[in-house]
């Protein structure tokens, strides 16, 4: 569903993810910039659970809770996702 294995850094893919994340955090999408601090709002256990599902749905990878909670900002979260995607694509080569 909408995940993008071939072009993990695709702009639309990231935009859709950020929109989904904004929904989870219950904030307007335009406020969720790279520097957005995850713990500044509703980054609770349910948000983590929903974000695991969002990443799975969007990118077809699993980023576990213990790794998600180590991310302080949206940029760190996106970097983590991209690193996982790169590792997955490398292992598929």
């Amino acid at each position: 569903m909408g995940h993008n294995k071939e072009q993990p850094t695709d702009y639309m893919s990231t935009k859709a993810f950020v929109a989904g994340l904004a929904g989870i955090l219950q904030v307007p999408p335009e406020t969720v910039t790279a520097d957005y601090k995850l713990d500044s709002g509703n980054w609770d256990s349910v948000a983590v659970l929903a974000t695991i599902a969002l990443i799975d749905e969007q990118y077809n990878i699993t980023v576990p809770a213990k790794d998600l909670v180590s991310c302080g900002s949206v940029k760190q979260l996106l970097d983590l996702i991209m690193a996982r995607l790169a590792a997955m694509l490398q292992s598929n080569d």
Binding site: D39, W43, D44, S45, V46, A47, V48, L49, A50, A65, K66, L68, V69
Partner: peptide
């Protein structure tokens, strides 16, 4: 206080 990495009532209800 938020403890996003642990199972709490929110996760159970979710």
């Amino acid at each position: 206080c938020l403890e996003p990495g642990r199972i709490d009532d929110g996760v159970m209800m979710g």
